[in-house]
């Protein structure tokens, strides 16, 4: 009897999707192509990733459950890692479930200088809802979807932290 090796397929979703096959806990294929990979640990938690003929210096910025951020050559990459199987199941699920309320978080720490809309108001995609001032720059925080402002959790002149929830928008019918 032929022993089947244990191959697991993963999908890494970030700005781009990358598929990785893992054989016996070793990375085996990337985007369905066999690759030569060697990861060399340096001091200070840095790694040199040799990928085919290129090598890159990087570090793991954060790892929480299946969310991983790495920094390579000074660029940051965020990935959500799922098995192919779980990813398919989730896709099925998102088809079934209703549209989600969008929570908009502060992209950077700063001060809210003005809130331009109020709860219950209709918004269009891209319309500014508030203005966040950080490092002397004013940033418009816009609605990512069209719909209705469900809630606004900050007031003008309030100081906010990065990733603090600013407001929620309910998708239109």
């Amino acid at each position: 009897m032929k022993l089947l090796s244990h191959i697991k397929k993963y999908t890494l979703t970030g700005e781009n999707k990358v598929n990785i096959a893992v054989k016996d806990n070793e990375i085996y294929k990337v985007n369905n192509r066999k690759v030569d990979i060697d990861i060399e640990a340096l001091e200070n938690d840095e790694y040199v990733v040799h990928c085919n003929e290129n090598s890159h210096v990087g570090e793991v910025v954060s790892l929480k459950q299946n969310e991983v951020s790495v920094m390579i050559n000074g660029n940051t990459y965020h990935f959500t890692i799922e098995t192919e199987y779980a990813s398919k199941r989730r896709e099925k699920l998102s088809k079934n479930s209703s549209k989600k309320v969008e929570k908009i978080k502060a992209p950077l720490p700063g001060e809210i200088v003005a809130v331009l809309m109020s709860e219950g108001q209709e918004v269009h995609k891209g319309e500014p809802i508030m203005i966040l001032e950080a490092m002397k720059m004013q940033n418009e925080i816009v609605s990512p979807i069209s719909g209705k402002v469900k809630s606004i959790s900050v007031k003008a002149e309030e100081t906010v932290m990065k990733d603090q929830i600013l407001f929620e928008v309910e998708p239109g019918k």
Partner: peptide
């Protein structure tokens, strides 16, 4: 850089 995304994915996968 060339293959940077791949390297990033590989490093993330390895960490995971």
């Amino acid at each position: 850089e060339d293959n940077e995304l791949m390297a990033a994915a590989v490093l993330a996968m390895q960490a995971y």
